[in-house]
Amino acid sequence: MTFSPDLFGLKETKKITTEIDVVNLNKSFGKRKVLDNVSFQVKKGGFLSIFGPNGAGKTTLIKILSTLVAPTSGKVLVSGISLDDDPTLIRKKIGLISHSPLLYPDLNAYENLKFYGTLYQVPHLEKRINFMLDKVELSHRRYDLVRTFSKGMQQRLAIARVLLHQPAILFLDEPHSGLDPHAVDILDGLINDIRGDHTFVMITHSLEKGIALADVVMILENGKIIFYQEKEHLDSDKFRKIYIQTVKGES
């Protein structure tokens, strides 16, 4: 059974409010179909939490949305721009926080941010770097090599790296995994600070966090959307049951 986002009338207001529009998206690696006819939309300023067992296609979906992987077929619009038309322009508007901090261990915190800031052509870069280092509470470690940072500190610096160019859309791939409670607080605080102005798509295995942050929740299983619902209409128990079933099915 597939659930269409059209149930919620999102398509009627698509031109004004849709930030991410995915239509009949398919992705195969060789003979293995990873995403099967996936369609959904995310409103501007919305927060979509994606749940699902390992191997459901969640990370592949995020990689397609962030232009890292090309779809096999289907249409994907990010900020109204097709993936095929101008991926470089899409990259200016997005940020991805993944399991890996994507930082160079032999550069210090400041050099890492300066490097990425130059690639993104961030205006007033020095000020922005100082601001972001303050935000993630790493100003005092700015000239220390990243290889000397703990996992939590690296993830905090990764958050600064991602937010440096003020992306309109943030993709979060299990952003809380491996974080200490302090780093979790900082990440959640930053998400709350920029909620409303930014659109979020988050992959998570934490039901509590995922539901608390989301406007819309979705479950992917074997590359198909098996559950898609706005939070205000969400029956938490039913959702929990379906999620547990999919995870048990995997194991």
């Binding site: 962030s66 470089t88 901090p101 930082l103 160079y104 990425y116 690639l119 052509q121």
Partner: peptide, 13 residues
């Protein structure tokens, strides 16, 4: 270190 992904995500030709 997975930094290639960071490079590929940047708006760089």
């Amino acid at each position: 270190e997975g930094c290639l992904e960071g490079l590929l995500l940047a708006p760089v030709d």
